[in-house]
Amino acid sequence: MSILQVNHLQKKYGEQEIIKDIGFQIQQGEFSALLGPNGAGKTTIIKMLIGITKPSGGQILFQGERHDRKRPFIGYLPQHPTFYSWMTGKELLTFLGRLSDIDQESLEQRMHELLELVGLSKAKNKRIGTYSGGMKQRLGIAQALIHQPKLLIMDEPVSALDPLGRRDMLELLKSIKQNTTILFSTHILHDAEELSDKILILNQGELLFSGTLHQVLESHQQPIFIIQAPRVHEWAPKLVNENIVESIDPTGCFVKVRVKDIASGRIWLLDRIRSLQLPIQKFELVQESLEDIFIRMVR
């Protein structure tokens, strides 16, 4: 069953079209990633989903119906959560839980479980002002889950964390994943790749792709040559050939070359390497990573 269905969603700010006719679905139990570079419109879409921004057009359906009050369905974690720093973690959960109409008894129970889950049991009576960024983010998850929402929406939950905090968060998300439907936005491909069943690629307000990771790889993945040799920038420009080479992408100590035809491309590249007398350390044909596809799509 689809929990969330979005049809022809649009958002304009004045003349500027920030979201251009977007449609997608989220099924029960899915973990979906909304993937897009900075300014793609991820936050704008999320704000419309949770109902704090009015769409300029289109519809948003939860379990097949329109709802003016979507709140009971959704748990929401904003991009930069700042809670009252004078509250303790437990007080915040109580406050927001009570505003979600959970009675005191089940709230206690739920809070206990969630604090355990996000690893804040020890810090629950400390002021939020003393929490680290990672702890605030985990508290943010706990508050988003407190009313047992059907759908958990998170705006860049891991982007602002250091590698350790990120690791923790990803583990936490994996453990929540079992019994929650989740939509999260990110501009970090690796996170999407690691967690999600489904990805939605967004660029400049347009949905470029939506489907499973497997589908995106299947339909968009292309083979590329990787050539490694010292002083990349000296010889990389010499690989230009409009008839054979589609793009050259020098990164670090190697070059990614996309060719029009694998067989003739390989012969030409090897010829070129020999005539330039490149002291190559590596020459290989690989499948593009998700990142390569993403960058190609949003360029």
């Binding site: 949770i50 704090i52 709140r71 959704i74 700042t82 927001l96 505003l99 109409d101």
Partner: peptide
């Protein structure tokens, strides 16, 4: 600080 949003995205 977004607390208003938090409060309003509750009931």
């Amino acid at each position: 600080n977004g607390m208003l949003t938090f409060i309003l995205t509750r009931n």
